[in-house]
Design a protein around this nucleic acid. Structure first.
Lengths: 344, 344
DNA sequence: TTGAAAGCGGTACCAT
DNA sequence: ATGGTACCGCTTTCAA
């Protein structure tokens, strides 16, 4: 670097500008083309061994790192798979799924990017994603409509996969049928003789996308039976749970589907503190089949969810990217089965 | 779209190529420059209202979305903040922190990208991140060394922030002092008269970055006392916990720091099933101060962690980006305090 | 085996 | 008020 006279040593050194392939070429005494050939191991072109060494040496010396944007701009495509990051942290089940998916896509040489969509909604969000020109987009929940899908496809996305409760026009769909979770739980409670059934609906707004279909599933399963369904709004704190437990007593509810295992734990504790016996007075069923359910006393009955494996989804994405003309696939991807333990 | 003769209707329509600003210009009957001025609301240049309308109209008609890579290539910088995504899903505490951070950075007009680093390590990972030319990089855990920081800075990152246990040369640091967690728990157990102390160390390899310093903290706090420290490896399943509980009995441990609340819950259950009374025979302390600790019986004593707020970190990043010459700041960011409940 | 040059999609300076 | 054009960093034909 050139030392600029009269620059006090105490100032930070002027930001050395980022080295480009032209700098590498200059230092190695070759053309930019040759640099590109060497660093990308281009098979169609033979470069002599001494030249290769000079180029590698120069690149290392400068700390050269290629510029992904420039590369994909020139190439006309990238291997970026974009997922909007959920606004609220979802449970361990989903985190695990996401982790698997990242791994599986990585193994297929895709670059996974969780995009923090700060406050954007619907089409605006879809446009923001489209600016990055991802080769595929995976959208969890009801985060996109048909217009959003169209925007993404028009801007080059070769696959859009939704994980929501229902298919979206033009997109592949992994149907996460949360109604099935509710149906499953309700069917179980009904079969165990429960008739006055409560359904916990978390007050956290980020969970509505799951809680509403679960509630709908319960309603659906109990339609045309002699059972009653009571909605139980519940914030995730102890006071609210205590109030709710009292209300369960007043309403003489004999069975509750508690949305998931964590809310079930909260409610069970409140019910027990309120003097209820579980399952004699009130049966409780959770969902997600987390470890903690097995540790509770009584052991928590739950709805086990079979999420699609990350590998399967990754393969779906890969297929769709390779065969962009193919008709969108729709898979049902949420196996729900009751795990009967001691709380019901 | 032009209908191409002799194209069977059954074939998918040829992928219409992605519209560019040149297409918009053509359709609106203006130059590319004008399109850019209009769509970016460039203040330095006045464009007549009718022209603006024509441009906007054309853009909407084509479904034009600007190309982020082209833009940032030309601009020479982006507002992308990159974070490597943790390989294993961390707890709810960390998820919440991450969520906050995303929100806060979004409000500062940064684009947050969680980058799924599939299997890359150390410098290779740092180079992969550098290819994206992020304006800032936030690295949780021990995911980067001084060379990695140098690579990132050389490729234009104006701020690198580490969240690890110790500062890294050249990077800003938010010191997450997990030793303090161990010291805190150990101090508490010792003060309550416990002398034969066990420390749970999860077997999940992704947690080593946290479990080892916590163990070291316990050792440090109990050095030069009459207490003994026993390492208790524990996988997150019931059988392993049962074996461990038996071992606790044989070793006559009278106090256990269980790594965190979830492992504490697992161990507590196993101890109780093994006939131990808590806290009389064995005191148990968790960490993270999760809701579930309050729901256990006895209520779980825990180490409450005060994570830095997402907003604070976002502001640190913003400051660093704006003042890239400034010396790296080092903040201590993990307040650890005992919450004494009934299990100790 | 290597180099010159075009071009990917925008932005911004300088003319007009 | 608008248009022409150089340029950001990289890949890839084509020519030498």
């Amino acid at each position: 670097m050139v030392q600029i006279p009269n620059t006090p040593a105490s100032l930070p050194p002027a930001q050395r500008s980022v080295p480009t392939s032209a700098d590498v070429a200059r230092l190695a005494g070759v053309s930019r083309a040759t640099v590109s050939y060497v660093l990308n191991n281009t098979r169609a072109v033979r470069i002599s061994e001494p030249t290769r060494r000079r180029v590698h040496q120069a690149a290392k010396e400068l700390g050269y790192v290629p510029h992904a944007a420039a590369r994909s701009l020139r190439a006309g495509h990238s291997r970026m798979v974009l997922m909007p990051a959920p606004a609220v942290p979802l449970g361990p089940l989903y985190s695990q799924f996401l982790s698997d998916l990242q791994g599986a896509l990585g193994r297929l040489e895709y670059t996974v990017v969780l995009y923090g969509t700060g406050g954007l909604h619907g089409d605006a969000a879809a446009r923001a994603w489209a600016e990055l020109r991802p080769v595929a987009v995976i959208v969890p929940g009801p985060g996109i409509g048909p217009e959003g899908v169209a925007v993404l496809k028009r801007s080059g996305a070769r696959a859009v996969v939704t994980l929501g409760p229902e298919p979206v026009d033009g997109a592949h769909a992994l149907l996460m049928d949360h109604e099935a979770v509710g149906r499953c739980a309700a069917g179980h409670l009904y079969a165990r003789g429960r008739r006055r059934i409560g359904v916990v609906v978390p007050e956290e707004p980020g969970l509505r996308a799951f809680s509403r279909p679960r509630l709908a599933g319960v309603r659906h399963a109990l339609r045309d039976t002699d059972a009653t369904v009571t909605v139980l709004p519940l914030a995730y704190d102890e006071e609210c749970a205590a109030r709710l437990a009292a209300r369960c007593r007043e309403l003489a509810l004999d069975g509750v589907f508690a949305y998931n295992d964590e809310y079930a734990m909260l409610l069970m504790r409140a019910l027990q503190d309120d003097g209820a016996r579980i399952p004699e007075d009130t049966a409780v069923v959770g969902a997600d089949d987390l470890m903690l359910g097995r540790l509770l006393r009584p052991r928590l009955s739950t709805v086990h969810l079979e999420l699609p494996s990350g590998r399967d989804l990754a393969e779906l994405v890969d297929r769709a990217v390779r065969e962009p003309g193919a008709a969108p696939e729709t898979h049902t991807a949420l196996g729900a089965t009751v795990v009967h333990r001691d709380s019901s």
